[in-house]
Amino acid sequence: MLEDEILSEFRASEALLEGHFLLSSGRHSAHYLQCARVLMDPMRASRLASALAATLPRDLRMTIGKVISPAMGGVIIGHEMGRALGVEAMFVERPTGTFELRRGFSLKEGEKVLMVEDVVTTGLSSREAIAAIEAAGGVVVAGAALVDRSAGTVDLGVPFYPLVSLNFPTYAPDELPPELAATPAIKPGSRAA
């Protein structure tokens, strides 16, 4: 899938929002990608996951035993990546503020895992998910995401494969440009501040 085709999927689903947004990373942006909207069409989600799976080197794809994603945003793309790779998909969640496997999900010691996100900005959630997977006995062999918003700077400690990179500027709360500072921030994501 070419970048223009990927972006047309986001536009067709009205997943690219403009305004003043408080991202789950704590940073602010004039643009927000609502991946839940792009993934609400099962056929579109399947196409995007197949394209994302195709970005992984073949030898890496052959080693993956499970796909694990952080809840809530990564659940759908994680499930579709499991389907694209022909492996089981699970998720970690934060019932008490720290990611963990629940709902009877478990890993065999040393099982090779692909961690999949919807959007990566700073990589905080991804690194927390990787730590939870490792604590449960898994070995994270790579990370993948529909969208890399880090401008290519994110370091997950494992190889990282995004489907597309969108580099909208983000700002710390004390660095807001006047046009953003003049409007209240909306927090459209799924994680509470």
Rank of each mutant, 00 (worst) to 15 (best):
A151T: 00
A144W: 03
G26C: 09
K187W: 08
V75P: 01
P184G: 10
S50T: 14
R58P: 09
A142F: 01
L156D: 01
A182R: 00
A185R: 12
P188W: 08
K187S: 07
E117L: 11
L156F: 03
L163G: 13
M40F: 15
P169M: 06
H31P: 01
S165I: 01
Q34H: 08
L22C: 03
I6Q: 08
E117C: 12
L101M: 07
G97C: 02
F160W: 02
L107Q: 13
I68M: 07
K66S: 11
F91R: 00
G110C: 04
V87M: 08
L7Y: 13
R37D: 14
A15I: 10
S69I: 02
P70R: 13
G110V: 03
L48W: 12
V139Y: 00
M90G: 00
V67D: 03
G73T: 03
E117H: 02
I76P: 00
L56E: 11
R44V: 15
F91E: 00
A30D: 14
M43H: 11
Y161E: 06
P57L: 08
A182S: 12
D59H: 06
V38A: 14
A71I: 05
R44Q: 15
L33H: 07
A193S: 11
A45I: 09
E100V: 14
P188R: 03
Y32I: 06
A15E: 07
H79T: 08
T98Y: 05
E3Q: 12
V113D: 11
G137Y: 03
I64C: 05
I130Y: 07
S126H: 04
E18N: 12
L56M: 06
R191K: 07
T153R: 14
I133L: 06
G73S: 05
V38T: 13
M1N: 08
R103N: 04
L146D: 12
R191C: 04
V92Y: 09
G82H: 03
A131C: 08
A53W: 03
L85N: 06
G65T: 09
A84L: 10
S8A: 15
A132Q: 00
L180N: 14
L56F: 12
S126V: 03
I186L: 12
R103A: 10
F168V: 07
R149W: 06
K187I: 01
V147Y: 01
G189L: 11
G143K: 13
M1A: 12
A36Q: 05
L180M: 13
G137F: 06
E128K: 06
